[in-house]
Design a binder for these strands. Sequence first.
DNA 1: AAATTATTTAATCAAATGATTAAATAATTT
DNA 2: AAATTATTTAATCATTTGATTAAATAATTT
Lengths: 203, 203
Amino acid sequence: MAKVVKAEIDLSTEEKIKEAASKVFTKKGYGNARTRDIAEEAGINLALLNYYFRSKEKLFDIVMAERIQKLFGILTPILNDTATTLEEKFEKITENYINMLIEHPDLPIFVLSELRNDPERFADRLQAKTHLTQSVFVKQLQEKGTEIHPFHFLMNLLGMIIFPFVGKPVLQTVTGGEENYLALMEQRKKLIPEWLKMMLAKA
Amino acid sequence: MAKVVKAEIDLSTEEKIKEAASKVFTKKGYGNARTRDIAEEAGINLALLNYYFRSKEKLFDIVMAERIQKLFGILTPILNDTATTLEEKFEKITENYINMLIEHPDLPIFVLSELRNDPERFADRLQAKTHLTQSVFVKQLQEKGTEIHPFHFLMNLLGMIIFPFVGKPVLQTVTGGEENYLALMEQRKKLIPEWLKMMLAKA
DNA sequence: AAATTATTTAATCAAATGATTAAATAATTT
DNA sequence: AAATTATTTAATCATTTGATTAAATAATTT
């Protein structure tokens, strides 16, 4: 056997394919992506892709798991931090998300549009229900004694943070070039937490 | 020739195909949609689809034009109404959008994810730049003398309205069934305008 | 070094898929 | 009614596309 080197080379070639797949899938979506695109992007033979991952679908599953984690993994630790106040959570989530989304602007539209195609399929990956309903964040909101359902705050937060990236193709035609867009996103890092604090105060 | 009847029958069969295409494309996206799916949904022969529309792509172009209009057509008349205040515009946009999105929850994710695939292609359909920069809405905001860029308000409004529908597959696993989700959306009709008024007041 | 196992490639397959063609049917015009 | 035009269908094409196979090469073990 060639265990040791297998592991190393596997990781290297496997990783090359996985990253190419992530890039191509994220840019074009599952249906528009061709396994040949991925192979070319990875600089390998098409057969190798199937040798390592058996099928387009299996490769896609692996990519999706990682992309979902990348998109939603930010939330869980912050929402469950007992050491921070609600206000600090707003700030951290906004800051972390916008920084990440500036680097990966096409991540949300990819994940959300693939989830639409088959929500059941990735339901277990999400586990949003448990993560959120029992989160410190929700408890802190309930302690405030507000009439407003906790998820409204979450929708507002995520909506204000993520939507500008989901709608980037449209919105950027309005704001002008990439620089202007980035400048607006930078402003939103400070603005969004303030807006949420206002909502909290009035609630 | 068969002019008169051609026009009528064309409209009927053409419309059947167009509506089937709209349904299938919206649900699955261009890349995952099959012309055979559309033909079956329309209850017609596959060849008929090509007889009327020449190709999948041309049919898609027509569908996209209508879907873009459906998604963004709501905005223009309200944003340019000189008879309403900013506050009333918030209310009208929220009310109209949420009502429409309850009927067509998969519209935004479809349009936005297809726009991502080729933003240039539909740039002329959007014309967001002109429609917005010179809108009454923007002028009214500027009269308020706020430091905050007008587009922040638009992003917040659209983000809070549209995002819950874009993220429905994820968010609904948290909120529970369709009824709960609808109830939350109904609440947002009243809440979102209030939140925007607060942002305006503090700005 | 020989044998074994793992990796990679070129060639090819089979099914899916968008599109066309030729013929049949229906409608309209003359 | 005959001729013309429009609509619809069944059958078929050509290409694309995901996947496999058999052979070549490289690495590892014995």
